[in-house]
Amino acid sequence: MFPGVDFHLLTYLGRIVDILLVTYVIYKLIMVIKGTRAVQLLKGITVILIVWFLSSFFALRTLEFIMQQVVTYGLLAIIIIFQPELRRALEQLGRGRFFSRSTVPQEEEASKSIDAIVKSANYMAKRRIGALISIERETGMTDYVETGIIMDAKLTSELLINIFIPNTPLHDGAVIIKENKILAAGCYLPLSENPFISKELGTRHRAALGVSEVSDSVTLVVSEETGNISLTKNGELHRDLKEDQLRELLEQELVNESRQTTSSRWQWGGKKSE
């Protein structure tokens, strides 16, 4: 019908384009759920599928039947479990941001954030102004952000201090920070149920430990009673920090992470320079 047109070549090119488009869509879906609890849920689903395959391979009929029922009715469960992530993806699609390029916090931005946090923490510690500041990293904190007042404001020491001034509407709760932005204030964080926590620690310290037990966030506490600064990460509590100690811990967790992320992206995009 079309002289000179190689339909086999067109079919071949069409398949390549099809594969590239599907790959890109899957990549963007991964970016949507990255940093949320859905990552852990996907790992659980992967384990279930592996068990189902092994039970079928080794003819374990009872286990295979159970796994088959789990997979059969799992679609509805997935929709329910992943409801926040699905809503997030649809919102981004509606705003035209689904296919936008994701940004990675750079070292300079992380340093600015640390400067603002350290400056505000020292100011509040000297005046014994209680504060609770949680910094989101890989594990998403959307559930906790939604319990507070959405701000989506640029991170500055002045704004942080104003939020925690006593008797203001937002002072009683946590501020959640991501990259160089204050996502929300007045947020509720889960309290730690660790029975070995010192009795002298109050609700802010228990909340800081609690959120560090369920996420990889870094959380800073300024005690209203003593003015001491503490920091929690991975279920660990670092108490009575001086300015240089606080800065060093934040740089270890935020600046070094930014360098590793940038380095890994460079190695993925091209050859590492010698």
Rank of each mutant, 00 (worst) to 15 (best):
I117N: 13
K126N: 06
N122H: 08
F98C: 03
N167K: 03
Q40Y: 15
L155Y: 04
I114R: 01
E109M: 14
T156F: 01
T142C: 04
L41G: 15
T261L: 15
K34L: 05
I150M: 13
E108D: 14
I197A: 02
N162M: 11
L170M: 07
S258T: 11
V25L: 12
Y144H: 11
K233V: 01
Q267C: 08
G202P: 00
E109H: 10
G130F: 03
F7V: 05
I117V: 10
I66C: 04
V47L: 09
L237G: 10
V71S: 11
T139A: 12
G173S: 05
A174W: 08
A125N: 07
Y12N: 15
A89M: 09
K43T: 02
P166Y: 06
E225R: 12
L250R: 04
L75I: 13
T219R: 05
S120W: 02
A131S: 12
F53H: 12
A38Y: 06
W266K: 03
I80N: 11
Y27W: 13
T147W: 08
R37A: 12
L189A: 02
F82K: 10
A125P: 02
E64L: 07
L246Y: 09
E146M: 00
K272V: 05
G235A: 07
N234I: 05
R88P: 01
E158K: 14
I135A: 05
K242S: 15
T46L: 13
K271Q: 06
S120L: 07
E158C: 08
L170P: 04
S215K: 11
N162D: 06
T142N: 13
E248Y: 14
L249M: 08
L10M: 06
A77I: 01
R128G: 00
R259M: 04
L246S: 01
G4Q: 05
I114Q: 05
G173D: 10
V221Y: 00
N122T: 03
Y144V: 04
T103M: 13
E138D: 15
I176G: 00
L159G: 06
L75Y: 00
S273H: 00
D172T: 07
K271V: 06
S134G: 06
H238Y: 15
N228I: 02
T219F: 06
L237C: 08
R95E: 10
E91A: 01
K178L: 00
E224M: 11
L41I: 02
S113K: 03
E225F: 03
E236Q: 14
T11F: 00
A174E: 10
L29F: 08
L159T: 04
L42T: 09
I33Q: 10
Y73P: 02
E253K: 04
P195S: 09
T156Y: 02
L13Y: 12
Q83E: 11
I78G: 07
P3Y: 09
S111C: 12
T147C: 05
E136C: 03
L21F: 11
E213W: 09
K181Q: 13
G148W: 09
E243I: 01
M141H: 08
V47G: 00
A131P: 09
V175N: 04
Q92N: 07
K112Q: 10
I79A: 15
G74K: 03
